[in-house]
Design a protein around this nucleic acid. Structure first.
Length: 876
RNA sequence: GGGCGCUUAGCUCAGUUGGUUCAGAGCACUUGGUUUACACCCAAGGGGUCGGGGGUUCGAAUCCCUCAGCGCCCACCA
């Protein structure tokens, strides 16, 4: 009964009710089922530190739409949830928490620190997953995994050992960002670049054995003490005569070679570069290339070491000034220029970052990346949208070895054990390490205490790259039922910013360890931005709180809002209005349902709505095909819009208006059942987008068993449809709109019934849809091709003329003017079509279909012109 | 600096291999509406020389060249 159903849909209760119901009956659960094809998604594991933000909302809505649809299409659908331990982010949070308690990492030591970290993880680590439930995420929660849990950690260590044994992991020198204040290496992400005003010092270096000098420009004169070469561009004419010579490093008085490399820009400074391999990444590479010595001149705290000579133990910036003075007094400072450049600062301590050489672990990327490269290029793995293929290729072609060690504690500790400093063994655990160490050294007396495990942990991505395999225990037990059934997964939904960090590496690992791709398709979402296009961030305060949104608009409303305008790979400019639109849509459906539930059925009554029923049936099938097409191309917004228009326009605005009994009247049984049947189909295709309201309506369509839920109902079957019926309806809709517009213009109330006399050559349309026309345009008498009074108003729709006699006197001039404009336009149109058709090259070159259609256009236009001219004449 | 991409209605975007009413959709906007499903609504309507210029073609939003503006990724210039 109508009064039982509120006029406004209230999602809060409904959503909680259904989520528990689905959980209760285990509809999200999946296990290998040989009689069904699997459809698998592994969630991009959110950081344990994470709190649900709008990016998650978009990302997980898309995944849920895909998984729910797959479930309904009869796949064994599995969505595996989990979280990522996120070394850097989590460690930073824990450090901050300790700081509040007045503790520091160093004081409490590794073990205690990790205790705190785990405690923190237990407390906050699950929040984000709980939040996802509010969104309606239909993950198999029993399968929730965590990248630092025991089984997944074992996988990481196994892989490390394996790759090492294959000779793909090595130790090497790398430049890290050193924070002299915090005395720690920090990641690239934690470096903040700022434009600062600095100085460019022009220093004269003496050429060995000659009375000449060469001038070099530098922003960091203190690093002169670490110079091991001077570099010029081999094409630089100015320095041709310097080739092969040596220069004397000022103050240090060291003789270093002049090397040549095209890396040096001839335009910058003097075109002559000092090379300090230990303190500049580019210089380091030059040093590698030209086999230069590398002299480190700094201590960990940013003071100079013994290579600083008389500046030993003084701070780098103090030395910079003093050294400049000394150079000046030596007459070796040519000039100082003001200069603006970008300098890296530590995000945490705001200290200027010092590039520092350090020993790190690397994974060789040249060989291992090959299948990952090829199989994306040949579309074995599809990137959506495909434009990302180019980016992927560029990265793969320029890939560098992957530095996999991080100077942190929260993470997978590198399974390397050092014996007396430099010698080491790689082993799965300490016991194994000990036996390997004994073997390696030949010293059977070695004890565990003689071994020291590497202090560093592995890059977080070194665990997440195994995710699609490790969640199914594909390492611990490589031939288990789960991994054999679910792997490769179907679709990965993630952000383009981690295409290289994560996606590419998962592909690499997939081929390396399973010989198979990890997923068939990668759907790359955009970034959720605010209306002004700014990235959403806490500091800007421009990010809405997702749970508040859900409370206000319902999860269904928010889901619709997220999907309304988010083509793959494009950023979504989020506007709260999108959620409003989503909510309104749900309310619309709710009210349509309220209407139908309120109908009184009269089983004696005759069905007069068969045309409407047939039409909507076809209309539905047409939309269903379009929907299928959109989904197959991952056009989520278009898919949703197809359903949106089908429900709002076709079903509510047209179909329900066609069949709706007038007030107090009853409805016949056939129409009633057909309408409920339409609801049944509509909620099925709505379900992936708006799971809650669709389930609620479905449950009210008829008496059902508790387990008979929409979430596991069948997706409607795609069938051919009759486009003739749809075309006819379109024409009738045009006629109805024209009449409504006429009422608007003439200010005739919709309640006032009109007489209508139609001149047409296509009466079949009216034979079928006449009753509908009468009802929706409020016509009291409909006749065809009768002679009309000269003073009648006439509307021209396509090739038909609608005479509508009304009491208002006709404004002949106005009507003539409109008709003449129309005539002009149509003639112009006809002219261009005829021109095309009289062009022999068009007729002979264009496909037959195109020509035929042009001919039809010509014919239609000609007929229309006749109709217009006739009406014009009758007005004279 | 290297690579990639974008520019279509006020906004966000579709527009498949050049060819039907292809210049579209949603929102926004304007006008009218207390029709008993819904004002979170109904009906109707007005908006664009497809960034500028040039070219190829019977035909260009779509292909080519060029200019302008914007964005992203990577490496960051002493």
């Amino acid at each position: 009964m109508a009064q039982e159903l509120s006029t406004k849909y209230n999602p809060v209760e409904v959503e909680d009710k259904w989520y528990s119901h689905w959980m209760k009956y285990g509809f999200f659960k999946s296990s290998p089922n040989p009689s069904k094809e699997p459809y698998t998604i592994v969630i991009p594991p959110p950081n344990v530190t994470g709190v649900l933000h709008m990016g998650h909302m978009l990302n997980n809505t898309i995944q849920d739409v895909l998984i729910r649809r797959a479930r309904m299409k009869g796949f064994e659908a599995l969505w595996v949830p989990g979280t990522d331990h996120a070394s850097i982010a989590t460690e930073a949070k824990v450090v901050a928490m300790l700081k509040e308690k007045g503790l520091s990492k160093k004081e409490i030591g590794r073990e205690k620190f990790l205790e705190h970290a785990w405690e923190w993880k237990e407390k906050y680590g699950g929040i984000i997953l709980e939040q996802l439930k509010k969104l309606g995420a239909s993950c198999d929660w029993d399968r929730t995994r965590f990248t630092l849990e025991e089984s997944l950690s074992e996988a990481v260590i196994d892989v490390f050992v394996d790759l090492y044994e294959k000779g793909m992991i090595y130790r090497g020198i790398r430049m890290v960002n050193w924070d002299p204040e915090g005395k720690t290496a920090i990641s690239d992400d934690e470096v903040v670049y700022k434009d600062v005003n600095s100085k460019l010092y022009f220093v004269n270096y003496k050429i060995e054995g000659e009375d000449r000098e060469v001038t070099i420009a530098t922003t960091r004169p203190e690093t002169i003490l670490g110079d091991t070469a001077v570099c010029i561009n081999p094409n630089d004419e100015r320095y041709r005569d310097l080739k092969g010579k040596k220069v004397i490093v000022p103050i240090a008085n060291r003789s270093v070679p002049i090397i040549e490399d095209e890396y040096v820009s001839m335009e910058f400074g003097t075109g002559c570069l000092k090379v300090t391999p230990a303190h500049d990444i580019n210089d380091y590479e030059l040093g590698q290339k030209h086999q230069l010595e590398s002299i480190e001149i700094f201590n960990d705290d940013g003071t100079l070491n013994k290579y600083g000579l008389h500046y030993e133990n003084e701070d780098r910036f103090v030395v910079r000034k003093k050294l400049a003075k000394e150079l000046e007094s030596l007459g070796q400072l040519a000039k100082i220029e003001e200069y603006q450049n970008s300098v890296g600062f530590s995000e945490r301590t705001d200290a200027v970052i010092e590039p520092k050489l350090s020993m790190q672990w690397f994974l060789k990327m040249d060989e291992i990346t090959k299948p990952a490269y090829e199989n994306v290029m040949n579309d074995t793995i599809k990137l959506i949208p495909p434009k990302f293929k180019n980016m992927y290729r560029h990265w793969m072609e320029n890939v560098r070895d992957w530095c996999i060690s991080r100077q942190l504690w929260w993470g997978h500790r590198i399974p390397a054990w050092y014996i007396n400093g430099s010698e080491f063994v790689i082993a799965k655990n300490e016991d194994e390490a000990l036996s390997k160490a004994r073997q390696k050294t030949g010293n059977a007396g070695l004890q565990k205490g003689d071994l020291k495990q590497d202090e560093d942990v592995l890059d977080t991505w070194f665990s997440s790259w195994l995710w699609p395999m490790s969640v199914f225990d594909g390492f611990k037990d490589p031939d288990n039922e789960d991994i054999n059934y679910y792997y490769p997964t179907n679709t990965l939904v993630t952000a383009p910013e981690i295409l290289f960090f994560w996606v590419a590496r998962m592909i690499i690992a997939g081929y390396e360890y399973r010989g198979k791709k990890p997923f068939n398709e990668v759907y790359l979402t955009g970034i959720v931005r605010d209306k002004q296009g700014r990235k959403m961030s806490k500091s800007l305060g421009n990010s809405p709180e997702p749970l508040e949104l859900i409370k206000k608009y319902g999860a269904d409303g928010v889901r619709v809002g997220m999907l309304l305008s988010s083509p793959a790979g494009n950023d979504l400019l989020f506007d709260i209005k999108l959620c409003e639109q989503g909510r309104n849509f749900n309310n619309k459906i709710w009210n349509a349902f309220r209407l139908v539930k309120g109908w009184n059925v009269d089983s004696q009554k005759e069905n007069k709505n068969q045309t409407a029923i047939d039409w909507f049936e076809n209309c539905f099938l047409q939309s269903l095909s379009q929907l299928e097409d959109h989904f197959s191309k991952y056009r989520m917004s278009d898919a949703l819009m197809t359903v949106y228009k089908l429900v709002w326009d076709d079903f509510c605005s047209w179909y329900l208006e066609m069949v709706k009994p007038s007030y107090g009247d009853s409805i016949d049984e056939i129409t009633y059942n057909a309408t409920l049947n339409f609801f049944d189909k509509l909620v099925r295709i709505l379900h992936p987008f708006t799971p809650f309201i669709s389930e609620e309506i479905w449950s009210q369509l008829k008496e059902r068993d508790e387990k008979d839920c929409l979430i596991v109902a069948k997706w409607p079957e795609i069938k051919a449809f009759d486009s003739e019926t749809i075309d006819q309806a379109e024409k009738i809709f045009d006629v109805i709109s024209a009449i409504r517009n006429f009422r608007n213009e003439k200010q005739i109330s919709p309640k006032t019934a009109l007489k209508l006399n139609i001149e047409t050559k296509d009466k079949a349309v009216y034979d079928n849809f006449g009753e509908i026309l009468i009802k929706l345009a409020n016509i009291e008498s409909l006749v065809f091709n009768e002679t009309s009074g000269d003073s009648d108003y006439a509307l021209i729709v396509k090739q038909d003329k609608l005479h509508i006699p009304i009491d208002q006197s006709i404004d002949v001039e106005e009507e003539q003017k409109k008709l003449k404009e129309e005539l002009e336009y149509t003639k112009g149109f006809l002219n261009s079509v005829s021109k095309k058709l009289s062009n022999e090259r068009f007729v002979s070159n264009a496909p037959e279909q195109v020509v035929a259609k042009e001919k039809q256009k010509q014919k239609d236009a000609e007929e229309r012109i006749v109709v217009i001219e006739k009406q014009l004449k009758s007005l004279q």
